[in-house]
Design a protein around this nucleic acid. Structure first.
Length: 87
DNA sequence: CATTTGACGCCAA
DNA sequence: TTTGGCGCCAAAT
């Protein structure tokens, strides 16, 4: 586990209900501005449900991907009150 | 050690 | 405005 991932997980863990961060924002918060892809990759390897990775979306407002299925991710976000650009 | 992959992002057409 | 292509970063192979 690299520090980069630790930071990413920590940040994502700080996201509260009804709130969502973009990969770029998380990357910036992790101190690796512009590393949006790396953030997505880190979350991809992460299977810890304690980390609300479903709260992390794309800057486009799209849902993005999810290790449990983007469908489930969209559903959760919708339940949380996060409005998505496109279902 | 070098190359490819991957839950992305931005610019050009 | 929507679709396509190129570029960036970190990790995995």
């Amino acid at each position: 586990m690299t520090k980069f991932q630790q930071r990413v997980y920590n940040i994502v863990r700080h996201i509260k209900c009804g709130q969502a961060m973009t990969y770029a924002e998380v990357a910036k918060a992790a101190g690796h501005t512009g590393a949006a892809r790396a953030v997505g990759n880190a979350l991809n390897k992460n299977y810890d449900l304690g980390v609300p990775c479903h709260r992390v979306i794309r800057s486009d407002g799209k849902v993005g991907g999810y290790n449990r299925g983007s469908r489930q991710k969209q559903k959760i976000l919708r339940e949380e009150g996060v409005i998505l650009a496109d279902r």
